[in-house]
């Protein structure tokens, strides 16, 4: 039944690499702004996870649903988020999509299928499942929804309930697990007892796909397979990619708990460097070209950051302080 799945081309690879590069440079900028005290909240980076994240976002189509998680700057940019809105949200600009009401990775534009995560891990799995159910009820076909999570998130009740419900309804959901070895400081040995997280797929009766999270080529091909299978009616697909978070949980975290053996193992390989190596070794582009791309990206991001820093911040006296959309339901508290 399945149409042949197209192999990843040079053009696909390079296009994805460019997004990874933008993500990496943007996150370096965010870390710099954090160290300079310009970001009031936390900064949570996806360093080491760009290949996987971009492979999800870039292979979704307009009309699909994407609910990224903490370390998905790459996937967000690939799906259509902008450097501008990322910086606006981190810096709390009033012009950002969250208007200073929420920050950092908690951003999205739900009307565009780009959902804004809540911090409670697993919560976006049933949410995307329900969105896909609504699409089915409307008679829409051929759309998929993807959501990302980490090894820690697979231990939540919401992960279980959401994936199980999606399987019961046979909805076109792709759950992408970045098995990055740590949930904050908790190593996988304290997170789960199965041999491999992909073993969970059979228990839920969903498709399973394993990827090398350090390899852009493998991530692109694996996600392409998973997305197409879901799109063609194959039901939910679980993707597990092994990789290593190359930074602390957030920029406040010195990552002192990192096992040095992991850093030196296969998962410790930096996916951005290995993608660059792949491009150069195949003779697609030279090292000089890649360096020039990085400089261009840096200039663009620095300019955007400078612009955002001049933008208005949210004004408490201007906020309508309305948690409900219907004005007549907003309660007035006399003394406040």
């Amino acid at each position: 039944m399945s149409k042949k799945i197209a192999p990843v081309t040079q053009s696909d690879f390079v296009k994805a690499y460019r997004v990874m590069l933008t993500s990496r440079v943007l996150e370096e900028k965010l870390a710099g702004l954090y160290r300079a005290g310009m970001i009031k909240g936390g900064v949570f980076l996806g360093r080491g996870q760009e290949a996987l994240s971009v492979s999800v976002g870039i292979q979704l189509r307009r009309g699909d649903i994407f609910a990224p998680l903490i370390r998905d700057q790459g996937g967000r940019l690939a799906f259509g988020d902008s450097v501008l809105d990322t910086l606006r949200t981190y810096l709390g600009s009033q012009l950002g999509s969250m208007r200073g009401r929420d920050g950092n990775i908690h951003r999205g534009r739900p009307r565009d299928g780009y959902y804004a995560m809540i911090s409670h891990l697993g919560a976006m799995i049933p949410t995307v499942t329900g969105a896909l159910l609504a699409r089915r009820l409307k008679g829409e076909q051929g759309v998929v929804g993807a959501t990302c999570i980490g090894d820690g998130g697979t231990s939540t009740g919401a992960f279980h309930e959401g994936l199980n419900a999606a399987a019961v309804e046979q909805l076109p959901l792709i759950v992408v697990v970045a098995n990055n070895q740590y949930a904050y400081s908790t190593p996988n040995s304290r997170q789960y007892a199965c041999t491999d997280l992909i073993d969970k797929a059979i228990g839920y009766g969903v498709g399973s796909h394993k990827a090398d999270g350090t390899s852009l080529l493998d991530c692109l091909q694996t996600l392409r397979n998973a997305i197409q299978t879901a799109r063609e009616g194959g039901g939910p697909q679980l993707v597990v990619a092994d990789l290593l978070r190359l930074v602390g949980h957030g920029e406040h975290d010195d990552f002192a708990y990192l096992d040095p053996k992991l850093k030196k193992s296969a998962v410790g390989c930096d996916c951005v460097f290995s993608a660059e190596k792949h491009i150069i070794e195949n003779g697609w582009h030279s090292a000089e070209e890649l360096t020039a791309w990085r400089s261009e990206t840096e200039e663009e991001i620095n300019a955007t950051a400078d612009r955002v820093r001049r933008e208005p911040l949210p004004d408490p006296s201007e906020d309508d302080w309305a948690a409900l959309s219907r004005p007549e339901y907003r309660e007035q508290y006399a003394a406040s």
Partner: peptide, 28 residues
């Protein structure tokens, strides 16, 4: 038919799915 659906024993998923459906314009 097809609009009154049995859910698994998953209150968190039931509410979460309603939220996703509502974002997509449904009235669950």
């Amino acid at each position: 038919p097809g609009r009154v659906l049995d859910a698994p024993l998953s209150e968190d998923a039931i509410i979460g799915m309603a939220i996703g459906a509502a974002i997509e314009g449904a009235r669950p």
